[in-house]
């Protein structure tokens, strides 16, 4: 998925000399080819994320197309105010890429993990949020982000969980992508790395699965239909259960349907221990067997 990101970026940068990548001294190895081909379109701003966003705002006003890259704990979380005031208020077309979202940096601890990024960005006007699940969605998302002429937060989470799609999907802003269709009255809506988990459990529970690569805006019509046609909707995300996909779906469901929504995500706690990504998912109840039990328990009560 990260390769797909960097390859798409190079294609866009070859076409658009005003496209420029700003990094806060992050992205080891990720931009080597880009730097080789378009050295003048790569700018390492230094370990100074707040200034980076302000500079991106200035460049955008000067006719450039800035892509601002950092780990998601820095962009958007650390620089939230700069994104709000310097970029979104003035509707500047700056694309923010938050890499390593969720528990990708499991060994590094809380400072480098981000499970609040969607929630905080979602409450700021004039910014879109994209959260691809695999390399094909990434290709769609990068191109969509570029074409919008608006500010975008592109969330890049665990990138090597495997493909969901066989080909690059046609993606209209806001749309959910149907992944599996089943006749049961349960529907899983997942985003990012958790789409894989949803697909893996789909057979077992005989449910339909949709991927949500667009979190803001989200196609309300599509979500409404899912909530009206199903008794139970399960949302899955590697993000807090507060303010992310689970909240988005619950908000819509509460207005138009009787469907019960189970939000699977990070509970209200920081991670405690060091370990592999899979270890941390388990600690947070997001590994396959924990998710399975959560759903089973919910179904028993429902």
């Amino acid at each position: 998925m990260r390769d797909a990101f960097s390859t798409e970026l190079i294609k866009l940068f070859s076409k658009d000399p005003k496209a420029i990548l700003l990094t806060g001294d992050h992205g080891y190895g990720l931009f080597d080819s880009l730097r080789k081909k378009h050295s003048d379109q790569y700018l390492n701003v230094g370990v100074a994320e707040q200034n980076m966003v302000g500079v991106a705002a200035g460049l955008s006003r000067s006719g450039f197309k800035p892509f601002v890259y950092a780990l998601s704990c820095f962009v958007p979380v650390r620089v939230l105010e700069q994104i709000k005031i310097d970029v979104c208020h003035d509707r500047l077309a700056v694309i923010f890429i938050g890499d390593g979202a969720g528990f990708v940096y499991s060994h590094l601890g809380t400072s480098h993990q981000s499970t609040e990024d969607i929630a905080v960005i979602r409450s700021i006007p004039n910014i879109n949020i994209l959260s691809p699940a695999d390399r094909f969605e990434m290709i769609s998302c990068v191109n969509l982000a570029y074409s919008l002429e608006e500010s975008v937060y592109l969330r890049m989470g665990k990138s090597d969980v495997g493909d969901i799609h066989q080909d690059t999907p046609q993606l209209k802003l806001g749309d959910l992508l149907p992944i599996k269709v089943n006749k049961s009255n349960i529907h899983f809506i997942a985003t990012g790395s958790m789409v894989k988990t949803a697909v893996t459990l789909a057979e077992e529970f005989e449910v339909s699965v949709s991927s949500a690569p667009c979190l803001k805006p989200i196609n309300k019509e599509q979500v409404s239909q899912i909530c009206q046609r199903n008794e139970i909707v399960v949302t899955l995300e590697e993000h807090s259960i507060f303010g992310g996909l689970g909240s988005i779906v619950s908000e819509i469901a509460s207005e138009i349907s009787q469907a019960k929504v189970l939000r699977i995500g990070v509970e209200d706690r920081f991670t405690k221990y060091c370990g592999t990504y899979n270890y941390l998912l388990k600690e947070q109840g997001l590994d396959l067997s924990s998710v399975r039990s959560k759903i089973k328990n919910f179904l028993k009560k429902a």
Binding site: V55, R61, S62, D86, H89
Partner: peptide, 30 residues
Amino acid sequence: SRVPGLEVCSGTLGHGLSVATGLALGAKRN
């Protein structure tokens, strides 16, 4: 910045200078 003639939102301090720096870089490149 909504006021004609004002370029940025500021007052939450330490913002305007970075935007100015980006504008200066943009102008230099252009």
